[in-house]
């Protein structure tokens, strides 16, 4: 589903991604782990098409479509979702108003009918229990005054509502207590399907106790230096990144 070949990217003239290859088939969950500064978050932003994060070389395709030709909104409509490590606050815009605008913008871009307010509310409500959010959260400003955990759960709610095909979650587990971590994991597991692929970007192995990955990759110095099954995460937890980097 997602194919990344020889991806190179520089941020403010510093080379961050140095020939990254990654292939994630539909139906699989992959995890990318790596030390701080390895380029994990950069990869997320390059995939989402953030300004200043353009690939200088290589290719990224989603379902065979070249992502580099699309802007951020078009990538979202094509089915790509990036869960943010630090979700942004938009004061005065209610969560539900934002969700509906985003949902309908994507449907419109795909030539589908937009949902009216009532139908959309019904669509959203089915996911509230999964993320442990009350209806009141829908009417608060988007991430406005949300705690760290609430922001992360709100990212998961957005993912559930938008039903993307390719999900990239950037350190969604960071800063969560154990209950919130389980809730977030529950949301991610609910999205596992043969039509979908999920990429978890994480620093720790902890999330992977709850969301079992099919493949684990180690990103270090801008490249995938090792790939393996779930047992690789265990090994990293035991040995740390230093050993892996040296081995590479």
């Amino acid at each position: 589903m997602l194919e990344i070949n020889n991806l190179r990217a520089s941020i403010q003239e510093e080379s961050i991604l140095k020939g990254l290859d990654l292939s994630i088939p539909a139906g699989e969950v992959h995890a990318i782990m790596g030390p701080n500064g390895a380029g994990k978050s950069t990869l997320g932003h390059v995939l989402a098409g953030r300004e200043g994060y353009e690939a200088s070389e290589g290719s990224i395709t989603l379902d065979g479509r070249d992502l580099s030709a699309m802007d951020t909104a078009e990538r979202a409509a094509a089915g790509l979702f990036l869960g943010f490590q630090y979700p942004v606050e938009i004061p005065g815009v209610s969560n539900i108003q934002f969700l509906r605008a985003a949902y309908n913008a994507q449907r419109k871009a795909r030539g589908e009918d937009e949902l009216d307010a009532m139908a959309f509310l019904k669509h959203v409500r089915q996911f509230l229990d999964t993320v442990g959010m009350g209806k009141d959260m829908l009417h608060r400003g988007l991430n406005e005054g949300f705690s760290g955990g609430e922001k992360k759960r709100n990212e998961i709610l957005q993912m559930l509502v938008l039903q993307p095909r390719m999900i990239v979650l950037d350190e969604t587990d960071s800063g969560l207590d154990i209950d919130a971590l389980k809730t977030v994991a529950g949301g991610i597991n609910a999205m596992r399907s043969p039509e979908r692929a999920i990429l978890l970007i994480t620093h720790y192995q902890r999330l992977l106790d709850y969301v079992k990955p099919d493949r684990v990759h180690v990103l270090a110095q801008g490249r995938i230096v090792r790939s393996g099954g779930p047992e690789l995460a265990q090994e990293l937890e035991a040995k740390g990144y230093a050993g892996i980097e040296n081995a590479a």
Binding site: A48, R50, E51, D71, T72, A73, R75, A76, A77, F81, L82, F84, P87, V88, I90, P91, G92, V93, Q97, F98, A101, A102, Y103, A105, Q106, A109, G141, L142, Q158, L162
Partner: peptide
């Protein structure tokens, strides 16, 4: 960052600006 966040959910740039401004005026 605000524009990027909204656009990453599928909103066009002009809709994102409009949404931020309307929220500001609420």
């Amino acid at each position: 960052e605000q524009l990027y966040y909204l656009m990453s959910r599928g909103l066009s740039e002009e809709d994102a600006v409009s949404m931020i401004v309307n929220g500001f005026c609420r």
